[in-house]
């Protein structure tokens, strides 16, 4: 189909203009900022410091422990979210009469935003746990992480469940019948037939959970905050505090650039690896 240049511009230019303005330009300005030292005040000049910000990052104890904490959190949460999500998907794809009701209830938490979820669970981990004598989890450096894992799992399990359901439904009936004719038991079918055929769903869900968990911010802010001695501060909140609370704009931006690099490398690597293990239907 032949389209005139004028129409092409009219259809695409407005969105591209906004997109460049909001995403592309700030991204490059951001790379620039990361080489400067600046306190964010217009009257103060930014000083070029080269790679100094990136070097300082590795000597910043608060940052290092926050990044490690986020990594540990992500590894645990990715596991719990996906295990629970697969389990839910297997339950609601059985012949149970209540499967649709169950699906509705299990998916609900995903629609409530992370910030509100954090506050809802604060009622549990703080008020209810104090009430029954289990102590306040939201201010404890270990139990606080556990609390965040639980809230994230609660939020995301129903979401990945939906993706796994789509994957399970796509498995042709004759494959399952063939397995049962060949005398495969429930667990044999599960591990030898269903799971290998679910590899595309694994790829998607691992990607979604990896990047979402690593970027955790809302739940961190509402459930625990940075915690005593910043012992519960996650990577995102660390960037936010560095820039907007401590006014180290250049240094905080360097952390933000590293944040992007980690997410890009890890998620791309994960997609490449799991894609290789997908089997043809």
């Amino acid at each position: 189909m032949k389209i005139k240049k004028g129409w092409y511009a009219l259809f695409t230019a407005p969105l591209m203009l906004v997109f460049f303005c909001v995403v592309v330009i700030p991204f490059f300005i951001g790379i620039g900022y990361s080489f400067f030292s600046w306190d964010g005040l217009a009257k103060h000049r930014a000083v070029f410091v080269g790679f100094q910000n990136f070097i300082n990052v590795f000597q910043d104890g608060r940052f290092i422990s926050s990044a490690l904490r986020t990594t540990v959190f992500t590894l645990i949460a990715v596991l719990t979210v996906n295990i629970l999500g697969i389990f839910f998907a297997l339950v609601v794809t059985t012949k149970l009469r209540v499967r649709n009701l169950a699906r509705t209830m299990l998916f609900m938490p995903y629609l409530i935003g992370g910030l509100i979820l954090g506050y809802i669970w604060k009622a549990v981990f703080q008020e209810y746990f104090l009430n029954i004598g289990w102590g306040n989890w939201t201010t404890d450096s270990v139990k606080g992480i556990a609390a965040m894992v639980i809230v994230t799992t609660w939020q995301m399990a129903g979401y990945v469940m939906i993706v796994y359901i789509t994957g399970i439904m796509a498995i042709p009936n004759d494959v399952m019948e063939a397995a049962s004719v060949d005398g495969a038991g429930y667990f044999q079918t599960l591990f030898k037939v269903k799971f290998p055929l679910l590899m595309p769903s694994f790829t998607i869900c691992l990607f979604l959970t990896l990047s979402n968990c690593f970027k955790i911010y809302d739940v961190n802010v509402s459930l625990t905050g940075a915690g005593p001695g910043n012992a519960l501060e996650m990577y995102s909140l660390n960037i936010y505090n560095e820039i907007f609370s401590l006014s180290n704009f250049g240094y905080g931006q360097a952390k933000a650039i590293i944040f992007f690099l980690i997410i890009a490398v890890v998620t791309l690597a994960q997609v490449t690896i799991t894609k290789k293990r997908e089997v043809a239907m």
């Binding site: 995403v23 330009i25 700030p26 991204f27 300005i29 951001g30 900022y33 990047s211 970027k215 911010y217 995102s236 960037i239 936010y240 820039i243 704009f249 905080g252 931006q253 933000a256 650039i257 944040f259 992007f260 997410i263 890009a264 998620t267 791309l268």
Partner: peptide
């Protein structure tokens, strides 16, 4: 792929 935190300040 770019996380919002990477561009929020600029």
């Amino acid at each position: 792929l770019i996380p919002f935190q990477t561009i929020m300040m600029p």
